[in-house]
């Protein structure tokens, strides 16, 4: 069984927002809402500053609190690729999942259900990359199966220094950023 995730090279990401536009187009994300976004993080003290630009989205965590807290089972881990999804017709819009996500990756769709990144599961099932990965002009995004030691994402993690976001929140995120 696959366990899909992403590896994103922060050295290559320039924050062009192509991934954001591709996601909105592919998934018809309503105006004013985003399933993915760009973060510009600056650390340190002048003049020794470090900057990291990265593209962010739902981390499809191995221990997803949004799934645990959901009272109807609408938020679930799909067998296909262990992707975290929401079944729209089961969601009551209680927003517990929005409150439970340390990444604030979810939002309420204007139709009332909780919505977020799906890793473009409809494309992945057809053997394609998610839209954001497919359009990245710097090729900084990699999508693949962490359970396969020979996948590109597994080999990148084995060979490069990397970090994940808010690990202390304890959700075991499945998006990693190369330093």
């Amino acid at each position: 069984m696959a366990r899909y995730g992403m590896v994103i090279d922060t050295v290559r990401c320039v924050g062009c927002m192509d991934c954001v536009v591709a996601c909105k187009t592919e998934n018809e994300v309503p105006e004013g809402l985003n399933r993915d976004w760009i973060a510009y993080e600056t650390r340190g003290k002048h003049p020794t500053l470090q900057m990291e630009i990265r593209t962010e989205r739902c981390n499809h965590c191995d221990e997803p609190p949004c799934v645990t807290c959901c009272p109807t089972g609408a938020s679930h881990v799909e067998d296909f690729g262990r992707i975290v999804l929401v079944t729209h017709q089961e969601c009551i819009g209680c927003k517990a999942c929005l409150a439970s996500c340390p990444y604030d990756a979810r939002f309420v769709h204007p139709e009332g259900y909780a919505d977020k990144c799906t890793f473009c599961i409809h494309r992945v099932k057809d053997g394609l990359d998610p839209a954001c990965v497919a359009v990245c002009p710097t090729h900084c995004m990699h999508f693949g199966d962490f359970d396969d030691p020979n996948s590109v994402v597994s080999r990148l993690l084995a060979s490069r220094r990397h970090h994940a976001l808010l690990v202390a929140a304890g959700t075991a995120p499945r998006i990693f950023y190369l330093d």
């Binding site: 954001v20 004013g32 985003n34 973060a39 993080e41 600056t42 650390r43 962010e56 604030d104």
Partner: peptide
């Protein structure tokens, strides 16, 4: 210090 700027501004979240 850490300064984090993001392009997201989702209703009810940001």
């Amino acid at each position: 210090m850490t300064e984090l700027l993001i392009t997201r501004s989702n209703h009810l979240v940001d």
